[in-house]
Design a binder for these strands. Structure first.
Lengths: 158, 158
DNA sequence: TTGCTAAGTCTGTCAACTAGACCTAGCCTC
DNA sequence: GAGGCTAGGTCTAGTTGACAGACTTAGCAA
């Protein structure tokens, strides 16, 4: 195989790295998983992710600062006011990341009984998942069908 | 909103967590990004990811142990034998994870000039990306269109 | 007044990351 | 065949971050 073109370009601007600098820390993905499952309270998050309280606190604060979660006060009848963490649109857009982690795990690391979570289309109930497709409507079945090319923001290595 | 069903189920078996325990460490995603860009050599990886050599060494070893990468010796004419790291099928299946991180970064954290990398369909050249669809062929446009349900491997919390 | 709970913060310990130097095997040149 | 070069690591010491467990605070309830 020939030398990959990628070696001629700088990685400093790569948006994978940019994404990871925001959500790439150890517990953040688990926090997001719970958020997508509808979990909104600190204590539920803490119990379900197993993250140390202090770490959870700092991850939630980071996600709020980045606009991925919104922290809003709410109050149940007869209860004192509490805080809840809800996904913003920016956070919702991270769903494909969680789904792709889930899909890989279901294929390669599912427990004996099968996957513990199934994703379904809200309207028709059929199983939902990610598909790799191109703008012309072809469905791609493998990473080999994709050719990465330098984009407008690419910078050559000096 | 009602109490999410997720609270009644155990997270210990969740395959998102299982996936993250294999590939969730800080530099691993960047290593995979480079692998998908065709980078195979230790030194190229090191230079492009910026990972400390020792960390890179241990991440590569972990990925090889998990069967995500294969370490194979090769030899260029007139050179001594070297090692290269190539994605296995199991590794190729992680491509959606990288693509989804890339897509989110392109939307929310792209550098001024635009995305540095474009993904294209190898056969037709059109832009490629992930879409959320259900088994009945409906395209889903938002995380809100997905309903997660307990799967066969779900375990109730005691 | 005391107790309870959600949502944190504080403290000490221990593991992980980091930078930078060092090592090693094969090849090349002299 | 001595020395240098390079890919692919390992070693060491210092710093940061994770962790468990105790403590804190605000509002409500008995």
């Amino acid at each position: 195989m020939s030398r990959p073109w990628a070696l001629d370009y700088d990685t400093a601007t790569c948006t994978v790295g940019a994404t990871l600098s925001i959500v790439g820390e150890k517990w953040t993905f688990l926090v997001l998983r719970e958020a997508f499952n509808g979990v909104r309270r600190f204590d539920d998050m803490q119990r379900r992710t197993g993250a140390p309280r202090q770490v959870l606190s700092s991850r939630l604060a980071r996600l709020v600062a980045e606009g991925v979660l919104r922290k809003t006060p709410y109050r149940e009848p007869g209860q004192r006011p509490r805080s809840e963490y809800r996904l913003s649109e920016k956070g919702m857009d991270l769903y494909p990341v969680i789904i792709s982690l889930l899909a890989w795990g279901d294929k390669y690391a599912a427990p004996p009984g099968g996957p513990p979570v199934l994703l379904t289309h809200r309207d028709c109930g059929a199983a939902a998942g990610l598909q790799l497709a191109c703008a012309d409507g072809h469905v791609l079945t493998s990473a080999r069908d994709v050719t990465p090319l330098p984009g407008p923001g690419a910078r050559r290595v000096a």
